[in-house]
Amino acid sequence: MTAGTTVDHLTETYRTHYKSLLGLAALLLDDTASCEDVVQEAFIRVHSARKRVRDPEKTLAYLRQTVVNLSRSALRRRIIGLKLLSKPMPDMASAEEGAYERLERDDLINAMRGLQRRQREVLVLRYFADMTEAQVAEVLGLSLGSVKAYGSRGIAALRVAMEAAS
């Protein structure tokens, strides 16, 4: 009985947030090939838990949190392994493939991969997802002070990495 409602919400959420979450995953992940898997899994998790989608205003927060969590390597490997076992992903269309290939050569992306995970998460949530420092602290389970510290160190590290790449 709630299925219809949920599907509609799923479609709506997809249209509104899927692309930006792909970007979030791409900035957090070490392997861009997993971006879509992670975002798909996040959508599935959030939308299969009906209690999570009762409040559309919170859906994005849940999705972002899930993407962040899934982006951590141990979990991601698990997801990928499961995916390979159970539901092979269709081949990506060439256009998408090209975008991911370009991403692989992106200096910023490569510089980000050299950062510590926390630094990277803070920068991405703060400047890509446009969260406040307090929101970032909430999502990552860090103190506000830690968020500030990771942020400033992350930017410093990013500068160094970008400089080295140039």
């Binding site: 792909l22 970007g23 900035l27 971006c35 998408e96 090209g98």
Partner: peptide, 15 residues
């Protein structure tokens, strides 16, 4: 950040 990932699009069958 936004520029780096701007080209990413969902796969055609994502939804």
């Amino acid at each position: 950040f936004h520029g780096s990932v701007a080209d990413l699009e969902p796969s055609p069958d994502a939804l």
